[in-house]
Design a binder for these strands. Structure first.
Lengths: 186, 186
DNA sequence: GTCTATAATTCGATAGAC
DNA sequence: GTCTATCGAATTATAGAC
């Protein structure tokens, strides 16, 4: 969301956001401190407050994730499950904001609210486009979320063996048929 | 684990544990305070420290959960998935310690360690008893955990609609085939 | 824009009277 | 066993000098 004129201190703001995503992702909302985030970003803690107002707004900015869901209409209908599993695995591996949101959502109501919004506004419409009966989209999307978030929880947060060490393609092979069923089963 | 002689203040200890399970379950590890737990139990905060030493030990006592897994050997092999889904739904609905452990495990390393122990010592052996190749038990158990924990996360922690409001039997009907595949698919 | 100093809370934990 | 009082540390957030 680029405004008309880029501010001079956008680099500093970006450094703060990167540090915030990492800290919120590793420590969760409560234990991630403004001080630690500022230290990681190499600036003064006061600057964080100046730029983002308070801790809650900083988190909202750090956890403003876009699932970047693919267009499943171009995928053969018997492969949408595997394709979606691939996509989510890739997103989790490369975007720290995903872990930040998940970890914080477990203990912080505002973060949980944001997760519900993201799932409702991004995942549900995509599911509605590929599932047999669009009126079932919220239910099917919630089931997809339950498996995707559960796998991410076990792999990235709890670091449960052997799920934490498995190659992404192995996980995709297991989760693909599950998501396929949640998306398409009549 | 009843010792030889029951102590006089076991009622107080039990009240503390019940309050701790609720607070840890609702607030997570960091935001659940000794003061709030003591207030819920109707006693002095000092007593909590006296009985349990410190916050970490109190949580360990509150989150000492037993999955009470059923003996799936007595269940027809094509129904183990549904039977297991039923069991977990029932456990989540009736034991606050389950939510306490899940919520805390997301932000507290000690709690995550306890979850790994519980899954390794309780779930893996059960899976080994019913899956085709026992050497795959850790992998299959982790997949079962990913779906069960993910569903619990969405339903009880994030309160994601419509999963949060669905009747348990509807959820069982969806998750049963998934768990069946994770347990038995060759 | 940047930093020092500090206000205002809150928490876990302890000492000690009774 | 129970409670009062409090310590010491950590946190978010603000005020204000430069």
């Amino acid at each position: 969301m680029t405004h008309g004129k880029p501010r001079r201190s956008d680099a500093t703001r970006a450094a703060i956001l990167a540090a915030a995503r990492e800290r919120f992702g590793v420590d969760g909302y409560e234990r991630a401190t403004i001080r630690a985030i500022a230290a990681d970003a190499g600036i003064d803690p006061t600057m964080v407050m100046r730029y983002y107002g308070n801790k809650e707004k900083l988190f909202a900015a750090a956890a403003d994730v876009d699932l970047r869901l693919p267009d499943l209409m171009t995928v053969p209908s018997d492969q949408v499950g595997t394709r979606l599993a691939q996509h989510f695995l890739n997103r989790w591996e490369h975007d720290e904001a995903m872990a930040a949101l998940l970890r914080a959502g477990a203990t912080n109501e505002a973060a949980a609210q944001r997760m519900r919004e993201i799932l409702t506004t991004q995942l549900v419409p995509m599911v509605a486009a590929v599932c047999p009966d669009p009126s079932q989209a919220p239910t099917r999307a919630a089931l997809v979320a339950s498996q995707v978030l559960g796998a991410a929880l076990c792999r990235y947060i709890l670091r449960l063996s052997p799920l934490a060490e498995m190659p992404p393609q192995d996980i995709t092979a297991w989760l693909g048929p599950t998501l396929q069923r949640y998306l398409r089963r009549v």
